[in-house]
């Protein structure tokens, strides 16, 4: 099962003739993803790494049946690329591009909600989505992931790698890992992805990696409290971040006293999530607690017998 992407996902890479686009299209393909097409306006008819290039997304969809787009188009043209994918009937758009103006994303999200309420956008400014062993639609190093039962959702790229690496080291595989991105306006939220993991039978536990800024982690906490029975682990980066300073990601800023790591940790703790303080001990903590939960369940079942 897993969520969002699997071995049947057919990917079109927008911006495939660029440096990033061609490199990662190849990496995704090597991982086993079905990269069926690329798009660069004016370069139709070319081939990149054996992948046919089209002038438009519509054409690529028609010729190859692509149902997922991976975007590397430079920031000034990225909004246009997302809308082109949506208008071509793409159901899942993964946008890697960093530095898209907030206004552009606001217009795109508004357009998407009004015209394609069922389409899904991951990112922008994100590492993408991976279902280990099936499909990698993004820029993450595939080899640190291992298939398993933990769903990861994160606002940060390298911190996702760090967490996945630690989990894998403790023998804990992942169902799917989703990088939702570090921009203030983006597609799927923590809450949206947690809801998907909650409904996915393969996912048995959820690891959420948040950071300062906004109130998405708090909104996820509300949902967790009401709807999620699976164990949820959470790490929030930025407990030492000063207010008013943008910590790299455009979205990572404490403003008007809102968006502090402390408030997010408290909300998650209250919702019943296991909040991990030490980012070096994510794997270790998840492994320990899952073991305890497993033992408790065994006891419960043996008591019942």
């Amino acid at each position: 099962m897993a969520i969002l992407v699997n071995k049947d996902t057919k990917v079109v890479v927008q911006g495939i003739t660029g440096k990033e686009g061609s490199f990662h299209a190849k990496q995704c393909k090597e991982y086993g993803t079905q990269v069926v097409a690329g798009v660069t306006p004016g370069k139709g008819g070319m081939e990149v790494e054996g992948i046919p290039v089209f002038n438009t997304v519509k054409e690529a969809v028609k010729e190859t049946g692509a149902n997922c787009s991976l975007i590397f188009v430079p920031a000034p043209f990225a909004a246009d690329a997302i809308v082109e994918a949506l208008d071509a009937g793409i159901e899942l758009v993964v946008c890697i591009t960093e530095g898209i103006p907030v206004k552009d994303m606001m217009m795109v999200k508004d357009y998407m909600l009004k015209n394609y309420p069922n389409a899904k956008l991951v990112g922008p400014n994100c590492p993408g989505v991976i279902t280990p062993g099936e499909a990698k639609v993004g820029i993450m190093p595939g080899h640190i992931f291992k298939r398993g039962k933990i769903g990861i959702v994160s606002r940060s790229g390298t911190l996702t790698y760090e967490a996945a690496y630690q989990l894998t080291k403790y023998g804990l595989g992942q169902s799917t890992a989703v990088g939702i991105g570090g921009d203030p306006v983006h597609g799927l939220t923590h809450r949206d992805v947690i809801e998907m993991f909650n409904k996915d039978p393969e996912t048995e536990a959820i690891l959420m990696i948040g950071e300062i800024g906004g109130t998405e982690e708090e909104e996820a906490a509300e949902y967790i409290e009401k709807e999620v029975d699976k164990p949820v682990f959470a790490y929030i980066a930025g407990i030492t971040a000063p207010p008013g300073k943008r910590m790299g990601h455009a979205g990572a800023i404490i403003m008007g006293g809102k968006g502090t790591a402390k408030a997010k940790m408290e909300a998650l703790e209250k919702a019943g999530a296991y909040v991990i303080e030490n980012p070096a001990k994510i794997g270790e903590t998840v492994a320990k607690i899952l073991k305890v939960i497993e033992l408790e369940e065994e006891e419960r079942t043996s008591d019942a017998e």
């Binding site: 390298t158 980066a237 407990i239």
Partner: peptide, 29 residues
């Protein structure tokens, strides 16, 4: 550090180890 999230986490872990970070620095991917 490479990456904004990991850079923040690095500041946090220094504090957790009893020190104080002098800066946030993301050198990019």
């Amino acid at each position: 550090v490479n990456g904004a999230g990991l850079a923040m986490a690095t500041m946090d872990i220094i504090k957790l180890a009893g020190g104080e970070p002098a800066n946030f620095l993301d050198v990019g991917g």
